[in-house]
């Protein structure tokens, strides 16, 4: 038990690692602030494409979504960060993470938005168009607000996934929370810094996870 506490919940080591971990946490927050809006924006584009009248565009978005939902995000990230330099395209870890997350998250958010848009009845389109609103106005002011509300639990739950996923940025040496914690681990030979990082993730995400299951259970009835 003592050795367990020493290895996993070592307060001294946690205190030493704290400044490093705090700066890592800040980077994680920054990263989230970049990739979540990017993903949502991309998702809207994807959803719009997937309901397009234009068949080629529909197919293209479907291929895009199927492809990027299938590729593990870590694979995508490594290909972009370590593979593209062979083609002479070199970029910072941050840039690589942003691109990989845009491709991955937009396809997941896109599917969610599409389901939302499809859940809004034809009647809403017809009613809005009959009052003279253009297609875009109808989409923007009538359909999307209802659509997002209908799929809110899925949007929140996917956002939790995106936040968790930022931890893979550590693999390309982006100094976010997990990278910082793992660095502290490797110099102290002690697991406590990663446990501390886990605690930070939990503090932020546990309430959201609870909220998601509330929302899902309520809508399920």
């Amino acid at each position: 038990m003592e050795i367990f506490l020493f290895q996993f919940l070592n307060l001294d080591i946690m205190r030493q690692a704290w400044p490093l971990i705090l700066s890592g946490a800040q980077m994680t927050v920054l990263l989230c602030l970049a990739v979540i809006p990017l993903g949502l924006f991309g998702g809207l584009l994807v959803a719009t494409g997937s309901i397009s009248q234009w068949r080629a565009l529909r197919w293209a978005t479907k291929a895009y979504v199927d492809f990027f939902r299938a590729v593990p995000p870590l694979v995508l990230l490594i290909v972009i960060y370590s593979g593209l330099p062979f083609a002479g395209i070199r970029m910072s870890p941050f840039m690589a993470v942003c691109i990989a997350f845009f491709l991955n998250a937009s396809s997941f958010y896109g599917e969610i938005f599409r389901a939302g848009v499809e859940s809004v009845g034809r009647g809403q389109w017809e009613a809005a168009r009959s009052t003279g609103l253009t297609w875009l106005q109808t989409y923007r002011f009538v359909v999307l607000p209802q659509a997002s509300r209908n799929v809110l639990p899925d949007l929140v739950s996917n956002t939790v996934e995106v936040i968790k996923l930022t931890s893979i940025a550590s693999v390309v040496s982006f100094t976010e929370l997990l990278y910082a914690a793992d660095m502290a681990r490797s110099v102290t030979y002690n697991t406590s810094p990663i446990v501390l990082a886990a605690v930070l993730y939990l503090i932020v995400l546990w309430p959201v996870v609870r909220l998601v299951s509330r929302l899902e259970h309520r809508l399920g009835h």
Binding site: T166, S170, L178, D182, A198, L202, L205, W206
Partner: peptide
Amino acid sequence: IFRALPPLVVILI
């Protein structure tokens, strides 16, 4: 806990 934690964090721990 397992829904809230990134799997990579648990793997490293």
